[in-house]
């Protein structure tokens, strides 16, 4: 097994004045190229902190992140992030938002015309080419997240990091976008790491589900393989025994063994 992305003994301790909180403890994980891995856990378990460490937006207190055997500790387009609340720049059009990353990443390798074509290609991938000249305030939440995905994809990341990408969307839009992401993963073969708190979403999309224990000092409690063949169809899976068994396992982990304690 070749480790494409490797999380090596990551600890994260926040210090505020004299008080220290250990958020993450001894996180070890290896992800293969082309794999779709979800990290699931209750809110406050530090899963977003973990994603920020991988993205380089926060640094680990000890341990590190290795991408293709090289340590990464600052943010970069090789680990593009799709943020929870889309984070499109409101003063730029859809096209310009995607172009911002493209211009930077391909400044030397692509000509102006090629970059333009590449932006449009990525907008086409998420079916947003029609809105190229609209501003984020003029499109719906689901469309914004599509553009967010296009922006990340357009940077040709080695690992695509999704930070609860569908969390802010209504159920129907969410299902639609999940299907889109699945189709993109099938087509492009990206390595994807997704943070989620939705069990169905995790089982439907992932090859492996990483379940985290509750914080403080959250660890990886269990890693579940999802042996479902791709392409997966939402409707067929609803009655699939393997799907239901996986779903059951995750639910048991979250609600029996690591029940979220409000007071903790």
């Amino acid at each position: 097994m070749t480790a494409y992305l490797k999380l090596d003994h990551i600890d994260k301790i926040f210090t505020r004045g004299a008080a220290t909180t250990e958020v993450l403890k001894d996180i070890n994980l290896t992800i293969e190229k082309g794999e779709y891995v979800s990290i699931i856990g209750h809110s406050g378990c530090g899963k977003s902190t973990l994603l920020n460490i991988i993205a380089g937006l926060t640094t680990a207190t000890t341990g590190g992140v290795l991408l293709e055997n090289r340590e990464v500790n600052s943010p970069g387009p090789d680990r593009a992030v799709v943020f929870q609340n889309h984070s499109l720049l409101p003063w730029l059009t859809v096209y310009e938002n995607v172009k911002l990353g493209v211009d930077k990443v391909f400044a030397k390798t692509k000509t102006r015309a090629e970059r333009d074509a590449w932006v449009m290609h990525n907008l086409n991938l998420v079916q947003m080419a029609h809105a190229r000249d609209k501003r984020p305030s003029e499109i719906s939440g689901g469309m914004k997240q599509r553009v967010g995905i296009a922006r990340a994809l357009a940077m040709e990341p080695k690992v695509l990091l999704l930070d609860e990408p569908f969390g802010a969307l209504d159920a129907l839009t969410r299902a639609h976008l999940q299907d889109s992401v699945m189709a993109l993963h099938q087509k492009l073969g990206n390595t994807i790491l997704m943070i989620t708190h939705d069990v169905d979403e995790a089982v439907l999309l992932s090859d492996r589900i990483v379940m985290m224990t509750n914080g403080p000092s959250a660890r990886i409690g269990e890693v579940l393989e999802v042996p479902l063949a791709r392409p997966r169809k939402r409707l067929e899976l609803a009655t699939n025994a393997t799907y239901l068994k996986c779903r059951q396992r995750v639910l048991e982990f979250l609600y029996e063994r690591h029940r979220f304690v409000e007071a903790a």
Binding site: A55, V81, F83, L100, M155
Partner: peptide
Amino acid sequence: NVAAVVQL
């Protein structure tokens, strides 16, 4: 964060 990821 966006600026950091894009490396402006």
